[in-house]
Amino acid sequence: ALVRLRGAASAHNAQGRLEGHTAETVAGALDRTPSERVGVRVVSTDATMVVEPHAFDMLGARVPPGEMRLLHRCASERFVRRVFLPLVHHVELIDHILSFLKLPQVTMSEVTAVKASSSAANDRQCSAANTLSADDGTWWLSAPDSCPNGVGAEWVLYRLRPAVGARARFQYVQMKIPKLPYGPLSVRVFHVEVADDESGPFVRVGPDLTTFNTDRMQEWALPTPVECACVRLVLTKNAAAC
């Protein structure tokens, strides 16, 4: 099963804060520990550890890209059908009503980088759009002096779907950075903000998230699924500052 680690799990690992990182339960570790504690493997690092019940939240099954889901705070589809069928009698009409209550899970091929707070350059190696490329030889870096002593609030803004204002659903953020000593400017602390308009207002979702010193793809879960048109990653501290 997939779990989201909470702040309380951080004490188990001296490398950094585990809050928000996703982990998978490990059957073997589960057997060896008292029933209330759970063995997990952290997705970002492959480290296994045993966590107390208050140090994680259970996550639902991953939703495939593009799959339509009812809004997070909506009643279940079964419930909506049961309530509306005696009122409108037409299944087609209920399907139509339900279509307004559904959003697709984000599909990465539809995501675009709209803009960034600044950029060190805008070329083949360095641009906000490069953060959507699988090529590890490209990156985005904020402008020189944008982050004095490695502390600031630099951001990259993404639109989740091609149509302006169209919303999608997501719960996980994944990020790749170069490992030290190659990545002293890599983000170490960041958070997620969402909006339905590129100009905001942006609403912060979830706590500060911390990267580990690994060049693997790292993964965090937000506290709940998020439904929005735009996502902004706000980077507040680099590896050198930590």
Binding site: S133, L141, C147, P148, G152, M175, V187, A240
Partner: peptide, 14 residues
Amino acid sequence: SEASCIGFLRVGFA
């Protein structure tokens, strides 16, 4: 100074 910018290689949402 050298440590005055911040960045990353790649991002994903799921």
